[in-house]
Structures are given as C-alpha cells and as structure tokens.
C-alpha cells in the first residue's frame, strides 16, 4: 500500500512538473506587447527593451526556466508585473484563496451528496418517474452550455426566490446561488455514474446468490450494492474538482466574488506571467491531487487493484 502510494505520488509530482513547464513555455510564446499594458504606444523601442530586460525576459529561455524553478522551490512565486506591479504574487493570492476555497469545497461537498443521493434514487426507481426526472436533468446539464443555465439562475431564480443578485460576503443568503450553480455540473455526472454503477451491480450474479442466501433487499443494497458501486465512483472525484474549477472561473465573475477564478482570466489577458504561473500551479495541483486521492481510495476499497507487480492470482 505504502509503496503504491509513494509511486503514485511520484507520478503526480512529475505530471505537475510537466504541466507547469508547458504553461511556462506557452506564456513565453505570447506577443510582447502585452507586457506594457496601456502605455505601449508611448514607449520607444529602447525603453521597451529596457523594461523587458529588467523583467528578465531577454535571458535565454532555459535561464528563465531555471530561475523560475529555483524561486519556486524556495517558496517564492515572484512578483506581479502588470496586474498589480511589484506586489508579490503570494500576497495577491492570499486575499483571494479563501473565497475560492470555501466555494470550491462547498460545491464539491454539495455535488457529492446531491449527486450520489440522486443516483441511488434513480437506480432504485429504474425506468420509473424519478429515473426519468433524473435522466432529464443529466441530459439538460450535458447538452446546454453551462453559461446559459448559470445566467438563467442568476437572472430569474434570484427574482423568484428573492435572492441577492450579487455576492456580499456578510450576507449568507448570497452564497446559495453561486454554490448551487457551481455544483450543478458535477452533481449531474455523479448522479449519472452512480446510477449506472448501481444498476450494473444489481444485475450481477452475486446479487442473486445474496438473495438466495436469504438476505433482504435492504441489506443487499447497503452491504453489497452500494459499497461496490461506490468504489468506481472514486475516480470521478478529480473530474468533479475540474468541473468546479471551470465553473468557478465564470461564476466568480458573474456574482463578483473576489476569488481566484476571475483573476486567472484577467492575468492571462494582461500577460502577467508570474501570476498566471502561480494560478496554474494551484489549479493543476488541485486536479492532480484529486486524481491521486481517487486512485488511493480505489486501492483501499478494491482488493483486486494490485499494489505491487507480482502477477494476478487468476
């Protein structure tokens, strides 16, 4: 188990390393105009060169990369160059992370609870009313672009339920809609997969044996079906994190939540390299951590996942 975990951890770190390297290089491919912001027209070529040189952008790319890693290992994320010049990136993020964290964790918890409950409900009433309603919901979420129902929620539901249209930190009611919006996508996928795995398990032979043994349907559901269906669900944890991140980027600006989501779009547009790199580092760490946790959970619950490489017992 430990060996497997360490191996997976090593793989995760390598993946993270590759992702940030790629992002770092991509940022260097963008046109240089971005670095000067509004004042671009007023600067002459010599001034521009000086600025770029001071930013370290005229050094060979491997020197820049080396410097970036060196700083990163020391815990130094660099300073913002355009967004808020010369302010350390860490400081900018410190103010924003809590909001994104609360909303992110809230949305993941909410979608996990709602999605799995809905999935169980659908599996139990397969082909009947609740299953149809649930399927309708899943199809809707997957077919309609997220922005449409986000806007719909903000414009109409706020009106109907008399909820505030924008986020205000000390008004707990204003947290509801952003949270719900963020969790809609992953709720749908949790429900769909939970239903699917439950139905799969219910059709397996061992359920028949369990019934022949004299176990009640309720016991079979709890002790056999639910647990077995839950194991493959672990692999959807990272996906749900990604969905929530993607949702947060849009939703945070929609409800003017001062979180990280809006910041990423801003930073990319204005070519604030250190800020983008830091944000990408955070987001990709989160998704890779999700993958890692998902795999570890699977290995804990499913004894068939071989932890070491000594061939199967088949």
């Amino acid at each position: 188990m430990l060996k497997y975990s360490l191996k997976r951890l090593g793989q995760s770190v390598i993946t993270l390393f590759i992702v940030i390297t790629i992002v770092f290089l991509l940022m260097r491919l963008m046109p240089e105009e971005g670095y000067f912001g509004q004042g671009y027209e007023k600067l002459d070529p010599i001034q521009r060169e000086t600025i770029l040189k001071n930013l370290g952008l005229r050094d060979p790319i491997y020197v820049q990369l080396g410097r970036f890693y060196r700083d990163l290992i020391r815990g130094n994320l660099g300073v913002s160059i355009v967004y808020r010049p010369r302010v350390p990136v860490a400081e900018i993020l410190k103010a924003k992370i809590p909001y994104s964290l609360y909303f992110g964790l809230g949305a993941i918890t909410l979608s996990l609870l709602a999605g799995i409950s809905l999935g169980i409900l659908m599996a139990r009433s397969k082909g009947k009313f609740w299953d149809r309603i649930g399927t309708g919901y899943v199809v809707f979420i997957n077919a309609v672009p997220a922005a449409v129902y986000y806007l719909f929620l903000q414009l109409y539901v706020t009106n109907i339920l008399k909820l505030p249209i924008l986020f205000k930190e000390n008004n707990p009611v204003s947290w509801i809609l952003p949270l719900v919006s963020m969790s809609l996508g992953s709720t749908a996928s949790y429900a769909m997969w939970m239903r699917r795995y439950m139905v799969d398990e219910l059709n397996k032979d061992y359920i028949l044996l369990a019934r022949a043994k004299g176990l009640s349907n309720k016991t079979i559901m709890v002790r056999h079906v639910f647990r077995n269906a839950f194991v493959p669900m672990a692999q959807y944890l990272p996906m749900s994190i990604l969905l929530v991140i993607a949702g947060s980027i849009y939703i945070e600006s929609l409800y003017s939540i001062p979180g990280m989501g809006g910041l990423l779009v801003d930073a990319i547009q204005r070519q604030d390299n250190p800020l983008v790199q830091a944000l990408v580092l955070i987001y990709s760490s989160l998704s890779i951590a999700g993958l890692f946790i998902g795999d570890i959970l699977m290995a804990i619950f499913d004894p068939r996942i071989k932890l070491e490489n000594h061939g199967g017992a088949r």
């Binding site: 397996k204 032979d205 061992y206 028949l208 044996l209 369990a210 019934r211 022949a212 043994k213 004299g214 176990l215 056999h224 647990r227 077995n228 194991v231 619950f301 499913d302 004894p303 068939r304």
Partner: peptide, 20 residues
C-alpha cells in the same frame, strides 16, 4: 430462502461479491 432452501449457482466466477 437460505434457511429452508439454498442454491448453488452455475458460474462461480461471478457468484461471489468481489469486494468482500
């Protein structure tokens, strides 16, 4: 079921719960 009449099934490869 079980108490009075029990059953042995055809395919032992799938008749057992793999996770218990």
């Amino acid at each position: 079921r079980g108490k009075e009449i029990a059953m042995v099934f055809q395919d032992p490869m799938t008749a057992l719960n793999p996770l218990k």
